[in-house]
């Protein structure tokens, strides 16, 4: 059995790959959330130039394939004098890329709050910031949680593209082992199982969070 052979022979490599995948996911997701939150606020805020910058950023990020973006950053950043390791560059790219989707998910959440409530807050003399903090944000958080879960799981899978440029995560390990062992089906089956082992519990935990947020008023 190829599969048993691959597992018994290469499991430490896959484990290290999985650790790297988790590391990439967590760091880039945090970065993406931070970027997304800032961009979403810019996008709906009262300052037109910032709104424009946010829109352009979102449109560009959504129009370029992630792999192309990673390679672009990898070869482009050193040209402008920024030298990061491949891993850091991959995290940056993932964060910047997913950040655009986070911004759109947040914006969609903001739109679930009736416009009249925003007008009421402004009519009471709240500045945009106060209105955002006291009226918009608390009411949109709940509706934003499900799409954020989707993005988190997408982000786990997207980290495979970092493997394509040499970051030693699950997909990279699988490619190496495949080269070594020439047992493609077993190797990539194991890689798929590794991703499942990360993504399924994440989705499960996220659903729990969603349920909890629904109980809290």
């Amino acid at each position: 059995m190829d599969f048993i052979y691959i597992v018994s022979e290469y499991w430490p490599m896959f484990l290290r790959g999985a650790e790297m995948t988790i590391f990439l996911t967590v760091t880039s997701a945090l970065l993406a959330f931070f970027i997304g939150a800032v961009v979403a606020v810019m996008r709906i805020g009262p300052i037109p130039p910032l709104r424009a910058v946010a829109s352009v950023y979102i449109e560009i990020m959504r129009a370029i394939p992630l792999l192309a973006l990673i390679i672009l950053f990898l070869v482009g950043l050193p040209k402008v004098g920024v030298f990061y390791s491949t891993t850091i560059t991959a995290i940056l790219t993932l964060g910047i890329y997913t950040g655009a989707y986070v911004a759109e998910a947040l914006r969609a959440g903001f739109r679930t709050v009736p416009k009249g409530q925003i007008e009421a807050a402004r009519a009471l003399g709240m500045t945009f910031g106060k209105m955002f903090k006291n009226v918009l944000l608390p009411q949109s958080i709940r509706s934003v949680i499900p799409p954020m879960g989707n993005l988190l799981v997408s982000n786990i899978k997207a980290t495979a593209l970092a493997g394509a440029v040499g970051v030693q995560e699950i997909y990279w390990v699988a490619s190496r082992v495949n080269f070594d062992s020439a047992r493609s089906l077993a190797v990539f089956l194991l890689a798929a199982l590794c991703y499942l082992a990360i993504a399924l519990p994440t989705g499960f935990l996220w659903n729990k969070l969603e349920v909890r947020m629904q109980i809290v008023r």
Partner: peptide
Amino acid sequence: LEGKDLSRIRADVGMVFQSFNLFGH
């Protein structure tokens, strides 16, 4: 126009809407 001064004046002008617009949370 927009900004803090507008908010300050709005604070002195009460408004009641057709659709109530209470904060749901």
